[in-house]
Design a protein around this nucleic acid. Structure first.
Lengths: 254, 254
DNA sequence: CGTAGGATTGATGATGTTCAAAATTGGTGG
DNA sequence: CCACCAATTTTGAACATCATCAATCCTACG
């Protein structure tokens, strides 16, 4: 068996990709790896794809792997007894899933769009962690970034108004949009329900705030309300209520 | 100069303590260190104490050190432009302050009680991080625990009612109380204002919920309202609305 | 015994939720 | 090509919760 032998997972399997050509090569947990370490990772990795809406891991369920998001986005959610939900994390390409030393997931992980993961067998990954500073130090960096992002979100959840929450979210989305010239345009991969879960609001309140921003001329809508345009980005930022937007701490831009 | 030479900081300095006798020796970032690494840490450490209410670091201010809380507790808070505040972290003994590679603090750090920090010069600590897997892997563990705690708190901030927030907070406090037999008794080091900042509520709402719990016989108050007794802990947990209390993810018990 | 700081209580109002219905869109099949 | 259907979004009205503003009360302390 060589490092380039295709490895197949049980379901939705993809052929193994060459790490050198990987789109997240320089941002994911493997970012600092040298060629030898990359070979070790290629030996233990496998790909799998989930469709939008599919559950990747149940809350409290077994998580026999760790891995990176290669393509698409996924949500981490927590539940209260009576069914109330809060999204506690949004995974984008290069983000890491799972944690060394833990075999079950403390959150439910759900595919928002079609998601492809690059999965590593946990025990073999842990062995690599112990021997390679490149992997462990990158994982530490990424975890500290996640921690900052989570704390930013705590400020939003605890203190921002519905209007500020929605404006903050939209500003976040536009920062990732391919277009940088006005009008900014973005087609959300999320429904109102997912946005509500992310912001700690109800669907109705999200909808009302989007409508409010539209009426005030800050944004425009197209089609089914999932495509949003913005002619005046500073006006949107002004509604976000933030001290200052700081890309480095922005959950979408790590 | 030897490893046991007392090192003095500019203000509120304490003599260097022996790491072996340190109360947080087995829980802090140095938990996994061997004797050699401990010697290196002793060479770069210094102690400093702040009084309750003092600012340890300003939001956005320079943070020339990293370090561990040895004694007391401190809060991490973030602000919006108009002054709204949210506590985003509660530091207890053994918790770590600062992050490698970053020279400014993204949060304001305030002493809740009298606080003593064991501070390490940042650049020397970073050098140790690069050479010692024991320090970096422990820091990774602690950071991932913090991340879990932050996400738990996101669920509280986003979805719990005022009653559930206060009950959750009190349950948290009682879990740290020295007494394990009924009646549980605890004297809070926090005022109503700090609790409100922690829970994303106002002082008045916290007070009303405490009163509500008292009227319903779940808790009793003593003195100025900072000493709280609980005869029926399960009744308190029932008010917390949580799925299950899980010590491992509890921000007070890491 | 008086005072200051913190905690509690009360009255009122704003904000966001809930429940219910209507509108819009994209897809399907005649 | 058009009509219909299901899913999603939007809108409306009533309500609940929590914040705000303004006293008042309590406790610790001098």
């Amino acid at each position: 068996m060589t490092a380039t032998t295709p490895i197949l997972a049980a379901h939705g399997a993809l052929a193994s990709q060459n790490c050198q050509a990987c789109p997240i090569r320089h941002r994911a947990v493997c970012a600092k790896c040298d060629d030898d370490e990359l070979v070790r990772l290629e030996r233990m990795k496998s790909y799998r794809t989930w469709q939008a809406g599919e559950t990747i891991v149940m809350e409290g369920g077994a998580l026999p792997f760790v891995g990176s998001v290669v393509k698409g986005s996924a949500s981490l959610t927590r539940y209260l007894e009576d069914g109330r939900v809060q999204m506690v994390g949004l995974l984008m390409p290069s983000d890491f899933i799972g944690r060394p030393g833990r075999k079950t997931a403390p959150y439910k992980v759900t595919a928002i769009t079609e998601v492809t993961l690059c999965m590593f067998d946990r025990s073999r990954f842990e062995a690599l962690l112990e021997s390679s500073m490149h992997v462990s130090s990158r994982l530490l960096e990424m975890s500290l970034d996640e921690l900052d992002a989570a704390r930013d979100w705590m400020l939003l959840l605890g203190r921002k108004t519905a209007r500020e929450k929605v404006a903050t979210f939209l500003a976040l989305v536009f920062r990732r949009a391919p277009t940088s010239a006005a009008p900014l345009r973005c087609t959300l991969p999320l429904g109102r329900d997912t946005i509500a879960t992310y912001l700690g609001l109800t669907i109705e309140t999200v909808s009302r705030q989007v409508t409010g921003l539209r009426r005030e001329g800050v944004i425009r809508l197209e089609g089914n309300g999932r495509t949003i345009l913005c002619d005046d980005f500073p006006a949107l930022l002004a509604q976000a209520g933030d001290d200052a937007f700081d890309d480095a701490d922005d959950p979408f831009f790590r």
